[in-house]
């Protein structure tokens, strides 16, 4: 555990909680892509099946349980409790264009050809692109609530911090996971445009709106 890894995890946790609180307090999931949230629930489920097979630490287990629990709670709020506020018309990204190629890639390029390992790889690949429906929705409506941008910033920072963590682990532990690193780079690159808008607009007190 190093500072990048810990702050990355906490940033991830903050993102998840910001989103849950935003929906809960406003009693609305307007502007939130339910499809991205379903993808994240799939990501956590596929990755954390090792909860049943291996124990790493109390920290590791509790974070996994919290992430999974919050992911399903978010999906429940969007598709059940506050379904009336869900903006399905603008959430029109075709997720099969992500899930199918990513599934194929996980079968082809993995560390070990075993069911759990392929599911882990699938979750790593899927996570790297799972935010695309949300970014697509924002580009379609041309705007995002400020609280939604805070959510996206924390979520994007999490994998960015993990990149620093991997550099650290490579130098100090000789640890090196090519699949996670490449997917993490892709994931971070997808946020670059958003990071730019966040710093130049949201941090200066303006609402995030895109030119028509």
């Amino acid at each position: 555990m190093n500072i990048f890894r810990l702050t990355g995890d906490l940033s991830h946790l903050a993102a998840i909680i910001i989103l849950l609180l935003k929906i809960w307090k406003s009693r609305s999931c307007a502007g939130i892509s339910g499809k991205s949230q379903i993808l994240f629930a799939i990501v956590f489920t596929a990755r954390y099946l090792d909860l049943l097979t291996s124990f790493i630490s109390v920290y590791n287990t509790s974070m996994k349980v919290i992430y999974i629990g919050c992911a399903y709670a978010t999906v429940y709020l969007i598709y059940a409790k506050f379904r009336a506020t869900y903006d399905g018309n603008h959430d029109s990204f075709r997720v099969e264009f992500l899930v199918v190629p990513v599934g194929g890639l996980a079968v082809l390029i993995n560390h070990t050809f075993s069911p759990l390992e392929i599911l882990w790889t699938f979750s790593i690949y899927l996570e790297s692109v799972a935010i695309l429906p949300q970014l697509f929705m924002i580009s379609k409506t041309g705007e995002a609530e400020t609280i939604t941008t805070h959510y996206l910033f924390c979520l994007g920072m999490y994998r960015t911090l993990y990149l620093f963590n991997w550099v650290w682990r490579f130098y100090f532990e000789g640890f090196f996971d090519m699949i996670a690193i490449v997917a993490g780079l892709v994931q971070t690159v997808l946020y670059c445009d958003f990071f730019y808008l966040y710093v130049t607009k949201v941090l200066k007190g303006k609402k995030l709106s895109l030119p028509a």
Binding site: H12, D50, T112, L116, E117, W120
Partner: peptide
């Protein structure tokens, strides 16, 4: 080789 690789990250 091991069928299961331990993944210690989240």
């Amino acid at each position: 080789h091991a069928l299961e690789i331990p993944h210690d990250e989240l």
